[in-house]
Every structure is written in structure tokens, then in C-alpha cells.
Design a protein around this nucleic acid. Structure first.
Lengths: 137, 137
DNA sequence: TTTATTCGTGCAACTAAGTTGCATCACACT
DNA sequence: AGTGTGATGCAACTTAGTTGCACGAATAAA
């Protein structure tokens, strides 16, 4: 929490309370988060600021977009290997049937998809339903 | 087109013009269709009827739901092997970057995903982006 | 340090998607 | 013909996502 500001400044991202609160909320929740949820969690900031900073963060490679198993747009923190405009979000996501949260799964569990001859596949999103680490027991 | 009514009656589905127009629209378009698109295409019927019949058809195993690469809810005709409440939509979907349509791909191209030890995977949705059969050339 | 420029914020308003309640109409079954 | 269930049409509404614009804050140049 304490060094979020420093990280921003290193990346040339102007550090504002809205942005700091945003990343802090992401770091303390280990799952993907929707805009409506962020809106409620960060009520002290305007919806629009949160909304635009999400877009900004995505452009900067701080977070990545994903659609969960119910088609809900969510955002999750990128790992370090996510560079600007070059997301390595080649990992799958798991929406837990019990706690309803959506988590990023490790890249090594994600299969490579081979293109059928008839079509061309450029990228793939894999979204699973099941039980997360906490809920499976 | 001519035997849609018969098929309905065989399955015990009451045959109405709205329902017939709906399946006919699906059979003549070989891609998945969103509710807003159906709304425009079937203007002679009320939005609500179209909407509720989509839900009804999904329950009956006539169509299946999917989210395309942009998180847009779409519906596609089920193959014959889709029984009521038991959809075999274990196939992946491809959203074409050129024509923007979303197609069902053959099941044999869809990899089986193995569950990582830490979590439990019950079902998987795979959505690809790329070029469809018509647009790839 | 004042000024200019750029960037971030807040407010309002709006589009579009998805959903529900209710009255009415059509059909099938006594 | 009468009754009950199923399908439709209309209206209204919730929620998500998005945009324009004016104001405020921070940075850079004069």
C-alpha cells in the first residue's frame, strides 16, 4: 500500500488519490472486479473518474479486461510481465460457483489452441466455471 | 422452413408465428445472434415475445447461450445432440474480426481442459477471435 | 511567480441491454 | 360455450457503459 505512489511515479503515471485507492482495492482483493463493484467500493470518488482510470490503467498495462463466465466485464491486476499495449493475459479465468468471484489462473494450466484449417484463430479467451481454491473444500 | 411447424409439434412446443419466425431467422443465419439484433430483424413481433421465446428455447434445448469475444450475449441453434436441459455446447466459438459475426466451431477442435490441482473446473467456455471461413481469404 | 498548457475530476445526461408486471388474447380441453 | 393455461403486447424500469463539458490541480514555460 505504502509504495503504490512510488510505483506510479517510476512508470510516469501521475499519482492521484483516486488512482491509488483503485490499485489498492485491486491488490487487497485477489479476484477480478467489475466497474459497478468498484463504483460502490470507491464511493468517495466519482464514477467517471473510476471508469476513466480503469481505461487508462488498461492502456498502461496495469490491469487487464476480461469477461467472466456470465459475460460480466471485469478488471484484474496484471502481473509484472504485462507491458503497455502488450498484455500477456494468456491465462484462463475461473468463475467460482460458490463465492461468485472470478480469478486468474496460472498460465501453465492454459492449453494452447490450434487453429482448425478452415478458420484463423488469432487469440483465445478461456473462462471456466467451478470452485476456487478457497471454496473447493 | 416448411417443416419448422411440424418439428415444434413433435417436440410438444406450441407453434406460433413468433416462434417460427425466430427459428427461421436462426436457420437462415449461420452465426450466433444477439437479442438486439433479433429485435430489429423481427420487428413485427414484440421485443418481449422474442425475448421470452429465446429463454424458452434455451430451456427446451433449441438454442444455446454464449458470450462472444466482446462479452455480448448471443444465441445459436443447437445441434440435434442437444437435449433439454442438457446442452452439449462443448464447442468453442469464434468471433470474426472482419465480419464481426460469431460462429460455433466443431467440437473436435475444442481441447479438453484439465483441472489444476488447486481448483475444480466444472465447465469451460472458449471464445476465439480471428477470421471465419468466409473472411479468411 | 505568473501564465499557459495539459491532465484529472465531478456532474449531468444519455444510450443500450436486459428484465418484469400486468392486462389481454388465443388456444386446447372439458 | 366455458374454463384454464399459455403466449403476446405494452409500458415501465433497472443496470451497465459511455460522453460532453466545465472546473480544478499540477506541471512546464515565460
Amino acid at each position: 500500500m505504502i509504495n503504490t505512489k512510488e510505483i506510479f511515479e517510476k512508470q510516469g503515471i501521475r499519482s492521484t488519490t483516486c488512482r491509488i485507492d483503485l490499485v489498492n482495492y485491486f491488490t487487497k482483493n485477489k479476484f477480478a472486479i467489475s466497474f459497478p463493484q468498484l463504483e460502490k467500493a470507491l464511493k468517495k470518488h466519482d464514477r467517471t473518474s473510476v471508469y476513466r482510470n480503469l481505461i487508462f490503467f488498461e492502456e498502461q498495462g496495469v490491469v487487464h479486461k476480461l469477461y467472466d463466465a456470465d459475460g460480466i466485464l471485469k478488471y484484474a491486476l496484471c502481473k509484472d510481465n504485462c507491458a503497455e499495449h502488450l498484455h500477456h493475459d494468456n491465462h484462463m479465468h475461473l468463475t467460482c460457483n460458490k463465492c461468485k468471484h472470478t480469478y486468474c489462473l496460472n498460465e501453465k494450466h492454459t492449453p494452447k489452441i490450434k487453429s482448425p484449417k478452415k478458420v484463423v484463430i488469432e487469440s483465445v479467451a478461456i473462462t471456466a466455471r467451478g470452485l476456487c481454491e478457497n471454496c473447493k473444500n
